[in-house]
Amino acid sequence: MITGVIILIALHALSGIFWAGSTFTLARSGGAGSDALFRPQMGAAVVAVLTGVGMWHLLHAGNFGLGEKVLAAGTLAAIAAAGVQGALHRKQPAVAQRIAGGLLALTVVCMVVARYV
């Protein structure tokens, strides 16, 4: 089981770092180049969410304490970020990246503090 958790954490971290990092960069650049990165970002979003679900199943199943509630809030923020990026990427790329960037920043904060609440 520990090997599976390590693999999930690695995939979750790498995809999340790419997704959040590219989102922050595109937000800063006013959305320039967002068309070229849309598919890779959405792919990273899918991998991040699916590996997060896998880790939840292995590490948090049956629990819904305060830490899990914080993680759930982060999950919802990440899913909302993907939705915003998907919905607005063609019409308002800068707005999509800025909103998603804020939501992904909230997601990261939730993941970091969940263990300590």
Rank of each mutant, 00 (worst) to 15 (best):
G74V: 14
V117W: 15
L76G: 11
V108L: 15
E68G: 14
A44F: 10
I6C: 07
V70F: 07
G54Y: 10
F38D: 02
T107M: 13
L37P: 00
M42K: 00
L50A: 15
H60G: 08
L71W: 12
L26H: 07
V53D: 03
G54F: 12
A13R: 00
W19F: 12
R115D: 09
N63C: 01
F18V: 13
M55T: 06
N63L: 10
Y116P: 02
I9Q: 11
G65V: 07
A73R: 04
L14D: 07
G54I: 02
V95Q: 14
F64N: 10
L103G: 00
H60A: 10
S15L: 07
S34G: 11
T23F: 01
I2G: 14
E68F: 08
T107D: 07
V53W: 11
L8A: 14
T51S: 15
D35M: 08
A36K: 15
L8F: 10
M42T: 05
G16E: 04
T75C: 03
G62I: 01
V47F: 01
H57R: 10
M55W: 00
G67M: 08
A87H: 04
G102D: 04
V108A: 14
R115E: 05
N63P: 00
V117H: 10
R90W: 03
D35I: 03
A27F: 04
L88W: 11
A45R: 06
Q97R: 09
A94K: 03
L103Y: 06
G83Q: 03
V49I: 14
A100M: 05
F64K: 03
A100T: 01
G31W: 09
G67I: 01
V95T: 15
V5P: 01
L37G: 08
A96Q: 09
L26M: 09
V84F: 01
Q41D: 03
L26W: 02
G31F: 12
K91W: 00
L26P: 04
I79T: 06
G101Y: 04
G62A: 07
L14R: 01
V84K: 00
L103I: 09
A10N: 04
A105W: 02
A45F: 15
V70E: 02
I6F: 14
V70I: 15
D35S: 06
T25M: 02
V113I: 14
Q41C: 05
I79R: 00
A94I: 07
A10R: 07
G4F: 01
A36I: 11
A105P: 00
A45T: 05
L103D: 05
L76E: 01
S34W: 00
A80S: 10
F24Y: 11
A13T: 13
S22I: 08
A36T: 14
Q85K: 05
A80H: 06
A48Y: 07
L66I: 14
T107R: 09
M111H: 12
L11Q: 12
T107G: 09
D35W: 05
V53N: 07
A45S: 08
L71S: 09
G16D: 02
V113T: 05
L58T: 04
R39E: 08
L50V: 14
A48V: 04
L104T: 12
G62F: 03
V95M: 14
I2R: 11
H60R: 04
R90I: 09
W19P: 02
G65L: 05
T23A: 09
F18P: 13
D35Q: 08
I9M: 04
Y116E: 06
